[in-house]
Structure formats: C-alpha cells, structure tokens
Design a protein around this nucleic acid. Sequence first.
DNA 1: AAAGTGATGTTATATTGTTACATTATACCT
DNA 2: AGGTATAATGTAACAATATAACATCACTTT
Lengths: 166, 166
Amino acid sequence: MAHQDAIAYQSHDHHHCIEGAMKAARQLCRQRGVQLTGQREAVLRLVWQSHRPVGAYDLLGQLPDNRNGRKPAPTTVYRALDFLREHGLVHRLDSLNAYIGCPHPGQQHDGVFLICRHCRHVQELPGERVRQTLKPLLTAQGFSPDALLMEIPGVCPRCQQDGEGA
Amino acid sequence: MAHQDAIAYQSHDHHHCIEGAMKAARQLCRQRGVQLTGQREAVLRLVWQSHRPVGAYDLLGQLPDNRNGRKPAPTTVYRALDFLREHGLVHRLDSLNAYIGCPHPGQQHDGVFLICRHCRHVQELPGERVRQTLKPLLTAQGFSPDALLMEIPGVCPRCQQDGEGA
DNA sequence: AAAGTGATGTTATATTGTTACATTATACCT
DNA sequence: AGGTATAATGTAACAATATAACATCACTTT
C-alpha cells in the first residue's frame, strides 16, 4: 500500500499496484461478506490499469462482451462502480466525471487528490491534516461534514520538469 | 459583502444579497473593461435568487424568451456561465453539476464550500487556512496547484436543529 | 421444488454539456 | 457618419454522462 503512495510519480512496476489492489479488494470483500463478482473485479482491474482517472464509458468500452455476445449496457458499469465506491475501493473525481482506484481501501476516508492537468496523473494523499485544519472552522459554523475530499488541479513534478508548467 | 458571509444561515433580507452581488458585478466588469450584458446579468441574477446551487438547465428554463420569441438554447446559458466564472462571479460546484454566486468576487480564489445535503444551502468560506495547511504538503510532493477549492457535503446547523441530522 | 435475495440484462430515457457555423450588436477608427 | 474589427448571441445538431423501470438469472435456504 505504501508502495503506490511513495513512488507513483516515478516509473514503477505497475503490475504490483494492480495485483496489490485486487488482493486488497478480495480480502476486504471477504471480510465484509460481500461478493466481488466477475464484473466488479473486471471493472476494478480496468480502473487500476493506470494512475489516471477513467470515465465510465471508457470502462464500458473495455469490458468484454457478456455471455450473449453483446456489449454490456451503461448500467452494468455504473452498478459495479457504485459497489466499488460503496466499499471504498474506487473514488469518483467529480471535477472529471471519472473514477480512480483507491490505494488504501477500507480505511477512514478523507483524502486529497492531486490531479495533473497535463498528464492526468492522480496522487491521493491522506486528508488528516486538512481535517485537523478544517475541524475548528466547521465546528464554528455548526456544520457537520460527511466527508472531506478535495480535488486539486495543477501540474505534477514530472510534468513541471518536462517544461509543462504552463 | 460581509453581509452574506455572516448571516446566510439565518433568515435575512435576500434582496440585499442580490442587489449587492449585481452592484459588485457591474463594478468589477467596468473595472476590467468587459461587458455585463443583458443575458449575463439575467443569468447572474437568477443564480443569486437563493443561496442554493442552480443547474444550467434550471437557469435556462427561467430565462425569458429572446427577441424572436423563442427559448434560448443551452449554449446561451453556458456561455453566460463561462463568462461569469471567468470573472469569479459564480462558481461551479462539480459535485452537483450546479452553479452558485460568489459572495466576494474579484478576490483571490481559494475557497471552501459547505453544502447542506438536506436543504442544499451553500456557505462559502475563505480558503486561507486550508491553503496554509496544504502548501507544505504540496511543496513536499513537488506539485504545483492551480486552485484550492473544496466542496464539503454535510448538514448545516439549521437542518441539524430541525432534526435532519440523519 | 419453492421462495427469497442479490446480481445482471435490457430498453428506454434523462441530464448535462459541446461543436460548428450563421447572424447581430457594439466599439473603434478615420 | 461610415466602415471595419471584435465581441456577443442565435441556431441546430449532437456528444457525454447517468438513471429508471422492469425482466431474468443464479445462488442459497428451506
């Protein structure tokens, strides 16, 4: 798990990320007594093909035909994504209408997403610091938050280096 | 301007919010040498009808017919919204696909939006504290952010009081 | 086998947003 | 004022994202 966090901006053995995520997912579903079915696993695996967010219709296009030899309908993907999100295995990035695998599923979920507008790489950071900062402000307002998620667009270190800062 | 910030959760003279926003908009556009045309003003005024976010097609439905007696097309609203956003007069809330007036346009724009999932009231707070907290984290990652906006779903004080905490 | 539950399939449709191109209004210059 | 450039708006078609409603299938429990 620490793997992705640490070196996602560097080249790395992505196979390791994928298999780690799948294993974590299987374990979590077993623990919770829910089914990681074929479709759900397939969608999760597709989501994990990169550290970039993927649209629902992209996923749909990549899913294999079902046993009737037909393309699955949008509902299929959305249902799988709903399930995966419910169990914290993927996040939806509202600013992109897209989905990305969560590198530490099953844990408390505040988070900060650093979204590179050049290469679309997404790095998820833990949200503790933000939560600590915000807590008093929210309390002062009397506002009771559900989740503290933050999507930050910008340029990642790699793209800055490549002169893509603009 | 401080008006809305302070008492938006309380009942208040909303007319004051609207006219304040319109006046600020006119002034800002004059300063910047851009045109606050009829359409743009109409859209801004509609956005300011409440402290709740409004969808683009809602706005569209409320716009008067154009001089040909026809309903304006979606493009019309999106163009107006683009303009208003460009000048910081409205924000788009990605988590809702909806738009809301900015209570302090023309200023630096980090911000935190407290979105009540019950009554949909939105309270915008200044983002300084969050920025201060995040700065070192982002620097450590080498990530160069464009904007720090945060949408926080939850329950507002008023709805909590009304027993709508669930 | 029957009944219940969860998962998937199927079809249609809703919602949100964009592209491309034509026309009209406004500002600017001489 | 007339002519020209630029900004704004109109129009039509369509793309992208998401949901609703209902039927079927699979698996478990009885």
